[in-house]
Nucleic acid binder design. Structure first.
Ligand SMILES: [Mn+2]
Ligand SMILES: [Mn+2]
Ligand SMILES: [Zn+2]
Ligand SMILES: [Zn+2]
Lengths: 137, 137
DNA sequence: CTCTAAATGCGAACGATTCTCATTAACCTT
DNA sequence: AAGGTTAATGAGAATCGTTCGCATTTAGAG
């Protein structure tokens, strides 16, 4: 239950937070913008503010519940943290998103950071291309 | 001479374009924002509009003269195209930027795209960390 | 049930980028 | 070299995602 998850993350179990978290726990959505969350909840009859959606998603990020991605186009996309780190491959035609993990790449990044004298904290990797479906159009 | 480069790229050799291109050809700047370009040129006594800087940089990008990077923080950073493709490692403390190319990573990305059925067009990879200098603070 | 700090809603503010439109400048033609 | 055509520019308004400020509400401890 979301109330538990929230308290565990050190967050009060408020109505907006419960609604947003349960929406993100539905496996029908994996990569959503704040606007997506806002509109979906409005359509479900919930009444909340877009500013709150932004605030809550940022808190979720800080609490480690979600990850914020900077997909192209200026707007952020959020994803529930489950199943661990992974990178993304996106279709530039239709916006489809697939996920992958590559141990070799992960390891090489560590090596590069070390060579350059950096203490690596994070990385972001996006592959862009045209998905199978869009290639046939 | 910049006039030549511009014509070759199919662009009229206007004053703003010449100024911006020569600024970017100085090896004192490698990764600059539109704002950086604008302020630097103003300080050099040039008189031009920020809107023009944005327009020109976008045209340069389309003409293949520069590459636009989406470093974190919402704003774009531009870099003259010379020396070919490379990726970046950034210090999250001081903003330092280093460059690298890793053949293994490049190749793996191709493989991943192929496996997922994508026709890969591009990729973006940023490693974040703390640079040597900042580790000592 | 009460109280207090924290969370919310609303609209204003924000910062990077783009757009509109009147004015200016490139450069092709005489 | 001068003129005309058309694209480029300057100035500021507009846009868009996101954040802020502040009055109001609510969660949760006592
Ligand atoms: Mn994902
Ligand atoms: Mn670079
Ligand atoms: Zn597609
Ligand atoms: Zn540093």
């Amino acid at each position: 239950m979301e109330t538990k998850d929230l308290k565990q993350a050190g967050l009060k179990a408020t109505l907006p937070r419960i609604k947003i978290l349960s929406l993100m726990e539905e496996n029908t959505v994996r990569h959503v913008s704040a606007e997506d969350v806002y509109k979906t909840l409005l359509e479900s009859g919930e009444d909340l503010s877009l500013a709150t959606v932004y605030r809550v998603l940022t808190q979720f990020e800080q609490a480690g519940l979600v990850t914020r991605h900077h997909f192209e186009g200026g707007h952020s996309v959020f994803e529930l943290n489950e199943g661990g780190h992974h990178d993304h491959i996106l279709c530039v035609k239709c916006g489809r998103v697939d996920e992958f993990v590559d141990a070799v790449i992960e390891e090489r990044q560590q090596k590069i950071a070390a060579e350059k004298g950096y203490d690596m904290t994070d990385h972001s990797l996006y592959i862009f291309g045209i998905c199978q479906a869009c290639q046939k159009l």
